[in-house]
Each structure stands twice: as C-alpha cells, then as structure tokens.
C-alpha cells in the first residue's frame, strides 16, 4: 500500500517534465531539425536551482513567495488526481471542487506577483491571464460536473477509476463534447498554440510567458516545474476521459496510461507545429465555444435524468 503511494508520488514528481521534452522533440521533427534532448526540461530545472535570484526594488514578499505557492498548489492538486490504476493519496467527497480551486489559487498568486512588479507589460499579461481564466474555469467546472453526474460521484478517484466505464456506450456524443471542450481548455490553461506560443520572443503577444518574465533562479525553476505538472495533470484527466476501460492488470494499465500520455504529448506537438496562433481578440470566442459545448453536454445529461 505504502509502496504504491510512494510510486504514485514519484511519478507525479518526476514524470511531468518529460512531457514537455516530448512536445519539444515533436516540434523539432516538424521543423526539420534535431531539437533539444528529451531530458532538456530536467537539465533546465537543475541549472536554475544553482542560479541566484535577482529581485527588483519594486517587488516585495508576494513576488518571492508566489512561484513556491503556485507550484505547491499544483502539486497538491496532483495528490487528488488518480493516475492509471493508482488511487490518489488524498480523496474525499467533493475533492473535484478543491482540485479546480487549487489551480485557481496557483493562477491567482502568479498574477499577483506579475502585478507586483509594476511593469505595464506584465500588467497586460496579467489582465489577459485573468480574463481567460474566468472563462476557462467555469467551463472546466461544467465538464467535471458532467463527469460527476455520469459517474454519480463528486470524487475524482471515483470518476476516473471506473466511474465512466459504461459512459461511452451510453452517452458517447456527450463525452465527445466534453473531450473537445476539455482539449480547448487544456490549450488555454497551459498556454499552447493556438492561444499562446510558449517559444515566442514577442513580448506584446505573450500571455503566460510575460507574467513570469521577472522571475529568476529557483523561482523560475518552480514556475517551469509547475507548468510541467499542470500540463501533466490536465493531460491525465483528458486521457482518462477518452480511454476509460481498464484491464485491471496493474502493470498493463500503468504502461498503457503512460503510452497514452506520450501519444497525447506528440499530438500537442503536432497541433503546435501545424496551426498558426490566433489573434488575441479571437481567443474569447474559442473559450466561448468550449463553454457552449459543455452547456450542450450538460443539458443532455440533465434531460436524461442525470445519467
């Protein structure tokens, strides 16, 4: 029991940066170049841990604390999330609500830190992040509510560990809507193309990148790591909704789960390589469409009497 718990935590702590590495390699393939090694995010984080931090005179403790708090919140959310056959270390009735709000807390402190710098560029990025956050959070809640209704539980572990096993056969179209909506939310929350280009050097177009422009050293390491874990958790959720069956053999399920995650990372890499970035004023439209999909799905479920 304890070994499984340790294993779960180890995967949660160690695996996420590899997803970023896979995305990087896929994009490099499409660009016709060799690209950074798969383990590059690990090297980057390791290096940042050995660097000092530079703080500007306009910031105070909020700026220094924010990256730590943000990453801690994301990791805490990770302890609520089941992976493959692993039951999460913490589970209770209603933990899905805490899950969403932990991400909200992470976003909140990072935005506060951006405002703390007093830079107008970061202020702009903060306002964009907050606006998109409003729209994406409500959609995420709706999606999770649909899943909760289908699996008759408000606990993530029960939703994703078998709660949806018959749902694809019964309400397949609804789940398709949920998946599409969720995918769009994943792209927005993790600042991927077509919403935001994580490798851009154009400060005026950045959303997520510009608000972390002033962090350095260990703070930046936290930010980078938190980003990886957030992507990992969202990807896990999405993958668990798409592929709901379990063979109930521990090794096979876990291996298959990682395989799905890798395929998913490659898919994100393909999307990033083949789509152009949206004009910033079109992003709310994208978020609204995600919201509408969820509403449709939700309505169908309600009409069916909640199952």
């Amino acid at each position: 029991m304890h070994i499984l718990l340790l294993l779960h935590l180890t995967i949660l702590f160690v695996f996420p940066p590899l997803l970023l590495g896979i995305i990087g390699k896929t994009k490099a393939f499409f660009a016709g170049r060799i690209g950074p090694p798969l383990l590059q995010p690990y090297f980057d984080i390791f290096k940042l841990m050995h660097k000092e931090s530079v703080y500007s005179v306009t910031t105070n403790w909020i700026f220094m604390a924010a990256p730590m708090v943000s990453t801690a919140a994301i990791l805490a959310a990770g302890t609520l999330m089941p992976l493959a056959d692993f039951k999460p270390p913490i589970q209770f009735w209603g933990d899905m609500v805490l899950f969403v709000y932990l991400f909200a807390l992470a976003r909140f402190v990072i935005v506060l830190a951006a405002l703390d710098t007093g830079s107008s560029l970061e202020g702009m990025g903060a306002s964009r992040e907050a606006t998109f956050g409003c729209l994406s959070e409500i959609t995420m809640f709706l999606n999770l509510t649909i899943l909760a209704l289908l699996s008759r539980s408000l606990s993530l572990s029960e939703i994703f560990l078998g709660g949806l096993s018959s749902s694809w056969l019964q309400v397949g179209p609804v789940l398709i809507l949920v998946v599409v909506s969720f995918f769009l939310i994943l792209l927005v929350e993790n600042s991927r193309v077509p919403i935001d280009d994580p490798e851009t050097h154009l400060e005026l177009t950045m959303i997520h990148e510009v608000i972390v422009l002033d962090h350095s050293g260990i703070d930046l390491a936290y930010v980078l790591y938190g980003k990886a874990v957030k992507l990992f958790l969202f990807a896990s959720m999405l993958v668990s909704v798409i592929i709901t069956f379990r063979v109930h053999d521990f090794l096979i399920d876990t291996a298959f789960f990682f395989f799905e995650l890798i395929v998913f990372a490659v898919l994100i890499g393909i999307v990033e390589s083949t789509m152009a970035r949206l004009r910033l004023n079109k992003v709310p439209y994208l978020l609204f469409s995600a919201f509408i999909f969820s509403i449709f799905g939700f309505t169908v479920i309600l009409v069916r009497g909640g199952h």
Partner: peptide
C-alpha cells in the same frame, strides 16, 4: 510566418 505562430514555413 513565425510571428503568426505558423512554425513549419519559418524553419
């Protein structure tokens, strides 16, 4: 192309 976020052609 790159500034519009479309990466293949920029490479």
């Amino acid at each position: 192309g790159m500034d519009a976020g479309f990466l293949p052609t920029s490479a």
